[in-house]
Design a protein around this nucleic acid. Sequence first.
DNA 1: CTGTTAGCGCTTTCAT
DNA 2: ATGAAAGCGCTAACAG
Lengths: 340, 340
Amino acid sequence: MKTTIYDVARKAGVSITTVSRVINHTGRISDKTRQRVMNVMKEMEYTPNVHAAALTGKRTNIIGLVTPDISNPFYGELAKSIEERADELGFQIIICSTDYDPKKETKYFSVLKQKNVDGIIFATGIENHDSMAALEEIINEHIPLAMISQDKPLLPMDIVVMDDVLGGYEAAKHLLSLGHTKIACIVGDGSTTGEKDRIKGFRQAMEEANVPVDESLIIPTRFSLESGKEEAGKLLDRDTPTAIFAFNDVLACAAIQAARIRGMKVPDDLSIIGFDNTILAEMVDPPLTTIAQPIKEMGQRVIELLAEEIEGKRKTKQKIVLSPELVIRHSTSPFKKRIR
Amino acid sequence: MKTTIYDVARKAGVSITTVSRVINHTGRISDKTRQRVMNVMKEMEYTPNVHAAALTGKRTNIIGLVTPDISNPFYGELAKSIEERADELGFQIIICSTDYDPKKETKYFSVLKQKNVDGIIFATGIENHDSMAALEEIINEHIPLAMISQDKPLLPMDIVVMDDVLGGYEAAKHLLSLGHTKIACIVGDGSTTGEKDRIKGFRQAMEEANVPVDESLIIPTRFSLESGKEEAGKLLDRDTPTAIFAFNDVLACAAIQAARIRGMKVPDDLSIIGFDNTILAEMVDPPLTTIAQPIKEMGQRVIELLAEEIEGKRKTKQKIVLSPELVIRHSTSPFKKRIR
DNA sequence: CTGTTAGCGCTTTCAT
DNA sequence: ATGAAAGCGCTAACAG
């Protein structure tokens, strides 16, 4: 049998109350007894039973992380930084991969509640109606919540996001500074706020530079490599942009492939800038100039925010907006008039 | 206050025992009472308190997953498939990312033990002495264990691995069948069993084809993109292999880049085959011919194995060896005599 | 088929 | 400064 608080108490010649006190640093205890108890605990390799503690209302030190897909490098890196910082703060992470399925989302909510997690971090959109309802329920039960990389302006919870407007702005700015004016955007389905913000920033930079935005150069895709390749290909077949702003690194890869198939050289014939700065960006040829999301820092900040709330150090919700960073590699170059 | 088993019992007009029985499907209960109790549970939205149950020796339905780095696409995909199947089987996953640090490894062992997980899956090597000691302790406590993608012949636990010998064999076979004979291998530091097995398979295929292996074409690297690029470059500068077998997809990318810098076309001037079939393989240009590890299936099988053991359905340990699969894309082509 | 009751290991008043 | 005792919510042996 595992050694319990009773075993320790007996061996140390004190009551279990005293042992409990030294474990939790509560109440007053003479240094002498404390030392004795601590020694016995060490000696017996005593570790408190988490469940018994949880049963009396103590924390579980478990945090749920709800993400759409951990195999996606972006979420993988996010999960990693969250887990790392969580570990430092004494929390474990239960991962929940929803696979973009709202049903799994709501299911996980109840599982996590049942597991009595101390808090939950959402890295999914939660657009679905049922999910929203489940979410509100969680809010009502005052389970500490934090949202990452997704804004939910109307709900009271901690939030860490990146400034997508600025990201779009910087991408456009970079291309403009290289002399490009005929710039295409390869976007997704336009549904998320992140996407909308990026294009907003893009437009702003164009406007400031007095370059009109050609709406026919804004190309929607299904956010996948195949779809990106196809749409980028169609674009290049019918028009001649000198630069492309892809809304993530995968789409940028797609654009590179589409260009290469058509005998265009990147960046000589076509500059391409990506978004996210995942591992792909350095893997691809040419290495991608891209707008880096501060993934690592975002992960650290959410978990810190959440931990503060769990520990009751702060009762007001907080929103942290981090800045993107332009990472210049080799997929963009100054505009040169093309020789036909 | 959350509704407890007592609330349900009272409302249903039975004892808590009866309620407990319908929850756990134990003992005999008349269909009538069962129905009544079930209805009340539904009505009150009752969910059992996991900690109270765990305190009496019931399972926690939590499984620990110890991996070196979830942000690595290979482990990310593995984690995903494990989580997915685990969810179906009713388990949650606590992730532990060791970052290849043996200290974190041993630390996680104790954390997981303390959290009373039902079982643990190791996706790390556990080469370190302290980790081994900790591992043996866990074995002694009879916590169900499973190892994935790593063999530990001397320890009694469930294992799921891929046949690396066969993988190396198939890679060589493919290249040989295309007419290549001057084949280079870009390997790592040669320390893991996986690597050794791959090269063993490679040699075997070469031998069967009566093609001598040129040892100077076996190039060690630090398994990183940079290192791979550098070493592959040196190789191409001093020699003229017609094909390269890279020991993972990252190294294959490195080889492609090194070749392109030197004006060589892949696959026309140089065929390259990778290993793993991570997302990189389809992202890169040209898409990579590679030896696919059945990541998804590996994940599913470990968790199934572990679940069986947790549920006590099987007491003998089991080892499952899965087969690799050649995925042909566009980075390899038949050998043509080079025109100088 | 159903109920009574004794723990599981710990926290927390309330005494002393 | 320390201890006795009452739960926390549930399971399971025992009794009917």
